[in-house]
Structure formats: C-alpha cells, structure tokens
Design a protein around this nucleic acid. Structure first.
Length: 319
DNA sequence: CATTCGTCCTGATAGC
DNA sequence: TGCTATCAGGACGAAT
C-alpha cells in the first residue's frame, strides 16, 4: 500500500524522467480511474494533450505534475494546472516504452514526446488493480495555505484545490510540531484515528501509523486531548524516522526506468516491527529478555498491531 | 461544528 | 474441483 515513502519514490522517478516532456496523447482504458475528473475523459484528454510537465510535486500521498501550456504566451509562466494523481491502494505510475506489453490493470496511458539526447521511454502508464486511486486535472491555487499543520509562508509550488485541505506531512520542512500538537489536543478522539486524518497530519497510512506508535511507545487508543508536548514530539520523530528509513530502502533505485511502487514496498516489509506481526515477539521486549508477543486489535475496521508491554492500553482510551 | 461510519474495488485466501 | 465468504485499505460523502 503506497504511503508517503512509496509516493515519494514515485515522485523522484517522475522528476527524473518526465519533467520537460510534452504529453502527446492520452488513452483512457477505464473510466473509473478518472472519476475525479468530473468533466469526463474527452475533457481530460483535450486539456492534457499539448502541455509540458514542468515539475513533480507531492504532499502527503497526493502527487501532481504542474503543466505548462504550449500555446503562445503561456510558456514560461507559472503553471495554472496540474495532472493530479493519487495511487490509492494499488496504483502505480510506470515509465515504459510503448513496445512493452500492456499491464493487466493498465487504466490510463500517457504518450510522451521524445526527450533531448538519448532515447527515453515514451509512455507514462497509470496501472491500478483495485481502482481506489485515480488521475485528474486540477487547478493550482494560491500558495498561502496557512492551514493544516503549516506555517504562514508556503514555499512554491502552488497547491491544487483538491489537496488544499491536506495537512503538511512530517517530512515537509515546514511541518510545525507545535501547531500539530495544539490541533491534536483539541481533538476528542484516539491517537491513531488522528494520525490517519490527512487534514491533521498527512502521508501516514495504516502501516506507518502502527510502526510510528510502536516506535514512540504510544497506544493507538490514547486520548488525543491528554497528549503531552514531549509525547507529540516523540510521535512526530517516530513518524519521520520510520518514513525516512523506508524511503532510504525504497528510494535507492529511484532513477530506475521502472518506477515500481509494489517493488519498493516489498522491501519495507522486512523491517516492520509491529504491522502484520500478530503473535510474533516484540523485538524491543525480546532484547530485554522479555517474552511478549504483538497483539492485533480491530479499529475502524482495520487491523492495529501493538506490543501490550511497550504500548499499554490507556485507562480512558478512545477507540 | 466535530466525529464516525459506510462505501467504493478486485484478487488472494480460507473453508466447506 | 468449485463455490461462497472474508479481508485488505485511502478518501470522501453521509450520518450521527
């Protein structure tokens, strides 16, 4: 499941291989993957064809490619539109040559102009088995979000309206722990629910939420309005540490032509401490000579994994 | 207003 | 063998 590190790996691949290329054609193989483009497939095609990708930007799990219009007078100006993508659960953005056979779950094909110099793959493909993800055209809004977890001054580039409600992620240099702490304390919910709320802190999904909570020795049901400043700091550091480690593991091959999200996340599984480890020993306890096993609970219809010793359940917790 | 729930989707897997 | 049931999860609109 692509969470922030996996999406960042994809972003780097796109920044390396797609920026500067022109979109020559768009082929939509499944309408569902463009459902968030309300004006439909023909509108999407018409708006994309002839534009040039100027950048690859990410916030949380949202990814977008700002586009310059080739029309006279538009080149060189700040892009006003972007091709927005969300990978959902199973989405991939693959950079491939048109000679490569179509993937079984190929949903949208973007044919690209040739780059300068050596021959480059001429297609960007959106592949998505479960179709929770999608692509669409977004209008870029003003820079000053001043909002979700952010500082007043927002560095470029512009943010699509559809992502304006998404908070800063823990790897964003402008992520502000103090603002996050204050907003967290105002919540009347459990800690993991808050972590998964993209309007409060973005990029954290079910897997890294469990990993960060384990690393910070905090329970998912801990009431957010009782969180202390040093606990928030510990949690944010845990999020950063876990995500940076995953990024390090998956980001090493970002210049590969084949940007494979699943391949990247496959590596991460080997270094998980909590997620998916029900019944297996807690590594931290094990090092201390204790025989504790990770337990699984169901929260929000999703699995949550904790160490009952490192992460004791709070008395007045909120599930 | 804040918070929580239900829904979308497909393929792997378990159980009979 | 082949059928059905269950599970996985991000985001968003609906319900509370």
């Amino acid at each position: 499941m692509p969470e922030l590190p996996e999406v960042e790996v994809v972003r780097r691949g796109l920044a390396t291989w797609i920026v500067g290329r022109r979109i020559e054609d768009v082929e939509i193989l499944h309408e569902r993957s463009i459902r968030r483009h309300l004006l439909g497939g023909e509108d999407l095609r018409g708006n994309l064809i002839g534009t040039t990708v100027t950048d690859a930007v990410r916030r949380g799990k949202f990814l977008w490619l700002p586009l310059a219009d080739d029309d006279v007078g538009e080149v060189g100006r700040e892009p006003r539109f972007a091709l927005m993508a969300h990978l959902g659960m199973s989405g991939q953005l693959l950079i491939e040559d048109s000679s490569a056979p179509d993937e079984k779950h190929l949903r949208v094909r973007f044919r690209l102009s040739e780059g300068t110099g050596k021959p480059l793959p001429d297609e960007l493909r959106f592949v998505d088995q479960r179709m929770f993800g999608g692509v669409f055209l977004a209008e870029l809004g003003p820079t000053s979000d001043g909002l979700p977890g952010g500082l007043a001054e927002t560095p470029l580039p512009l943010i699509p309206e559809e992502a304006a409600h998404i908070a800063r992620d823990p790897l964003d240099p402008a992520f502000d722990v103090e603002i996050f702490h204050r907003r967290l304390r105002k919540r009347r919910t459990g800690l993991k629910r808050a972590l998964l709320d993209q309007a409060l802190i973005s990029g954290v999904g079910n897997i890294y939420a469990d990993e960060a909570l384990w690393a910070a020795k905090l329970h998912f049901a801990r009431a957010t309005d009782t969180i202390r400043r040093n606990e928030t700091a510990r949690l944010v550091e845990a999020c950063q540490q876990v995500m940076l480690k995953a990024l390090e593991a998956g980001g090493t091959s970002f210049d590969s032509l084949y940007v494979n999200v699943n391949g990247a996340s496959g590596y991460f599984e080997r270094s998980l401490n909590a997620y998916g480890r029900e019944g297996e020993p807690c590594r931290r306890c094990e090092a201390l000579g204790l025989q504790t096993t990770i337990r699984r609970d169901v929260l929000m219809k999703r699995s949550s994994y904790t160490c009952p010793v490192c992460q004791p359940r709070p008395r007045n917790g909120r599930w």
